[in-house]
């Protein structure tokens, strides 16, 4: 028999979570369909370390891949940032439409950077959430104690361009920080806010999707190319299917989570037209900076703009 390939995959998702269940089911199917030639071994719950550590271990070959937040693979494909542009997608429909058209291009970009993408699923939109005061405009935001993840320099630049000075804290201190008033404003996805218990300290949410993020299952290109093409196809097909399911489920969960937040008495603040315009102006400036610094392909930006206006006009008809 041809020697079996064991693909060691690390992830931060804990064992038993939705992601893990679906990935394990996919791995089982792949093992069957390849008659045991391709096996997966998962290391969940962050036991192999954070994103940087996992990537290091991929580089030395201990791991063959990982299920990681898309942002951690930016180096391989800076164009991924197109999805995390600020205030670019107004609702789920818009991002779904855009992804339909450019996911494959983004995947190709990653492959060029050395990572074969065998699954992509959304974590969802992050929203601004605050504990003390209802916020609807930038002036109000500037008066808050805004949390920023330690060492997140891009996010700091964005906030700076909004005129906001932020308070850096590690994730582990955020809940206590909200409780004690060390900070009072955070950005997080609804699922995340519930899982991390932050929602217990939150009273207001700005009803405006800030930015979108994805989780990506990737295998190192070198390891992937050592697998027989027929088996590669099986891996692709099965995992893509699994990730479509995860994507659908996360979409549903995020929607439900927003309802849970509302049911917990959290108030959704809708900015007025003029306020929205102001947010958008600032966001556009921050986004433009990314294009100007050359990290994001202007052609891709144009393409997405076109897709969005296509979608919006079709919706208005």
């Amino acid at each position: 028999t041809a020697q079996a390939k064991t693909l060691k995959i690390a992830t931060l998702s804990p064992e038993g979570s939705d992601w893990m269940q679906k990935m394990r089911a996919g791995a089982k199917e792949i093992k069957q369909k390849t008659s045991g030639r391709v096996k997966f071994k998962f290391y969940p719950g962050g036991v192999m370390g954070d994103d940087s550590a996992v990537l290091r271990k991929i580089r030395i070959g201990q791991l063959k891949g990982g299920a990681l937040p898309g942002g951690s693979l930016l180096k391989a494909n800076p164009n991924y940032q197109i999805y995390s542009l600020l205030l670019s997608y107004k609702n789920q429909g818009e991002i779904d439409y855009v992804r339909q058209h450019i996911d494959s291009e983004i995947k190709k970009g990653f492959e060029k950077g050395g990572f074969v993408i065998i699954g992509m699923a959304e974590s969802g939109f992050a929203y601004a959430m605050s504990s003390k005061q209802a916020i609807s405009n930038i002036t109000q935001l500037r008066q808050q104690k805004v949390w920023i993840p330690t060492n997140d320099i891009n996010f700091q630049k964005i906030l700076k361009s909004f005129g906001v000075t932020a308070i850096p804290l590690p994730y582990g201190d955020v809940l206590a920080g909200l409780q004690t008033g060390l900070i009072n404003t955070v950005a997080m996805s609804p699922i995340g806010a519930i899982a991390l218990q932050w929602y217990t300290q939150i009273n207001y949410i700005i009803d405006m999707p800030l930015l979108y993020s994805l989780g990506i299952l990737t295998i190192d290109k070198k390891s992937f190319s050592k697998i027989k093409p027929a088996d590669q196809k099986i891996i692709m097909d099965v995992m893509n299917k699994a990730f479509k399911k995860i994507n659908a489920q996360n979409k549903k969960h995020n929607k439900e989570s927003l309802e849970v937040l509302a049911a917990n008495g959290i108030e959704f603040i809708k900015p007025s037209e003029t306020e929205l315009k102001e947010w958008q102006e600032y966001a556009d400036k921050a986004n433009q900076k990314m294009v100007d610094t050359g990290t994001l392909d202007p052609k891709l930006v144009e393409k997405v703009k076109k897709l969005l206006s296509e979608y919006r006009s079709s919706k208005h008809k």
Binding site: P170, D173, G177
Partner: peptide, 10 residues
Amino acid sequence: GIFSGVFAVS
């Protein structure tokens, strides 16, 4: 200090 939010546990 911890309970009033002046500093974090860490």
